[in-house]
Write a protein that binds this DNA or RNA. Sequence first.
DNA 1: TATGTCATAGAAAGCGCTTGCTGTGGCGCT
DNA 2: AGCGCCACAGCAAGCGCTTTCTATGACATA
Lengths: 349, 349
Amino acid sequence: MTVTLADVAARAQVSPATVSRVLNGNYPVAASTRERVLKAVDELDYVLNGPASSLAAATSDLVGILVNDIADPFFGIMASAIQSEIGGPGGRAGGERLAVVCNTGGTPERELTYLTLLQRQRAAAVVLTGGAVEDEPHATAVAAKLRKLAEAGTRVVLCGRPPAPETGAIALTFDNRGGGQRLTEHLIGLGHRRMGYIAGPEERTTTRHRLEGHRAALAAAGIEEDPRWTVWGRYDRQAGYEATLELLRRDPSLTAVVAANDSVALGACAALRESGLRIPEDVSVAGFDDLPFSVDAVPALTTVRLPLAEAGARAGRIAMGREEPPPGGIATVRGELMVRGSTGGPRVS
Amino acid sequence: MTVTLADVAARAQVSPATVSRVLNGNYPVAASTRERVLKAVDELDYVLNGPASSLAAATSDLVGILVNDIADPFFGIMASAIQSEIGGPGGRAGGERLAVVCNTGGTPERELTYLTLLQRQRAAAVVLTGGAVEDEPHATAVAAKLRKLAEAGTRVVLCGRPPAPETGAIALTFDNRGGGQRLTEHLIGLGHRRMGYIAGPEERTTTRHRLEGHRAALAAAGIEEDPRWTVWGRYDRQAGYEATLELLRRDPSLTAVVAANDSVALGACAALRESGLRIPEDVSVAGFDDLPFSVDAVPALTTVRLPLAEAGARAGRIAMGREEPPPGGIATVRGELMVRGSTGGPRVS
DNA sequence: TATGTCATAGAAAGCGCTTGCTGTGGCGCT
DNA sequence: AGCGCCACAGCAAGCGCTTTCTATGACATA
């Protein structure tokens, strides 16, 4: 029913071995023979059986990209960049690889399951993006899985994620702490002293690091933080909206709101506006990531630009073995402070 | 080196066949035996060899999702919804499936290559999202590929894409034409007569349908269209920005700008503002899709809401055979007009 | 002319798993 | 007690490909 290698071989009057070699191009085959084979392939409309091939060769051309939330451009941009370097179809890389992105939804279980599935498929490489969950047992399980993968020859790269020591994984880490710190320093420099902070999900590394940066800046400026000024929520607009309302309720005298990321900041802006407050005259707002839409907000969002596409591309190249991993297997990627219209001096009340 | 089924069998003192059956759970195995096997699996940390399994069973648990641009939330949202229904890890579906999203970048070649790669992997199902390219030879090639896939038992579903007749593919099509028409009717109802239109890439079905809707509304209202009023570009913010400047240059008397999608509309807003024009007092702006950030624009964007998540979920269920395909294999999904602050009556000049 | 070398092609042994078919005890029935 | 049946387990034949090793002819060299 389906066309097999043997069918092609028969048609081209050669042995299956020869057909295989023509298709893989890693063994000398006379030009005339090659042509005959290719012609037969074409005529029979033959498509290689991937599983059989992977089984026999003990390798596969699958490359997995794990993301926390595929609907979030933060991940979309990274995934896109990674994929473009993986080669996938259209890439310059010779061997065609199937770059697949897997949506973990940010849950540890799915992350683990996808990792197993990828291991099961004997993936050639795996790239994990975004912050990790800090739950201890889970972190251990993931680390163990990563080590197994690495041992089995799968290249593992972390992009925008903290290093996983002793797993053999290469890490390209974002300097969330430093970025958060510079952002808050900027606000302090403008004269703000009473700032609300909308953090992301509590157990994420990204959340913790950004918040630590914020607090470090406050501490350095000798500003004592009020526990009421921090609210936790998801990394989306809705959460930012609600958190802002909560902050306003807790302390109406805040002159600035720092959000865990741009989506959250947008929600914050909406809440402030609906509360009759002007940005930045009454309250300044700052985000993080500098996603494409951030510059279109009104006023444009002050934020920390993370080189998502660049980091993704680099991670992709490393995963493909086309670029040297950084020394020690760890590199830190800095964000750049983008000062725009959403931040200004505090109102004089 | 790597643990195989046979190792597990030896350890559990059973035959490989029994281990396989325990793992697949589709054959009666005594409870005591099952436990023994499971224990051995656990102790040896055994992971099934996917390719071998797929080869022997002549099936695979891969499900492909093709998207034009993974960095665009339009696709991210659909992909996310599809994936959640595929089951993937965490889904309710019994068999664990690896839902993978493939980024075609909107180019015909990559689309075709990914389809071949998926065919090669003997994917269980494939979902193609978003508009198709209307290039004739390409369309034919894709259709042929889809037919092949369907014949090989792969379920093919189109989501937000026009039907592909005689390929056996199920289509969930967006009513882009109708949506575009209602949007422009709304503008006409407000009194607009001179409207610019920023279209997407010329060869896309989505682009053409939305534009046709727009023109149908104009024709119905007896408004003669000026060819200068249509500008083409990509589906992104940047393109919208540039196109708007161009429109303004061509005809400064326009009172409204209709954009091919929300990202484009955002770019249009930026261009208008920088040109010193107020929205909607001087110029109204309308988008399409109603992506999450559209409601946060200032003023909030009038647009056509496409039920991306719902359609994606349905496509996913159909792909998994968990929902009946629509009669005739084709269903049309309507968009809902969302009237917000970015549109108003034309200025009286 | 005899011999070694090289380029190319084929034979065949798996890769690790699934599954149809074939046992084989234990049990209920007559 | 004798029989058939059922529940369960094993055997063994592949699934379609890759790759090592071997064979063969052509050619160059001695």
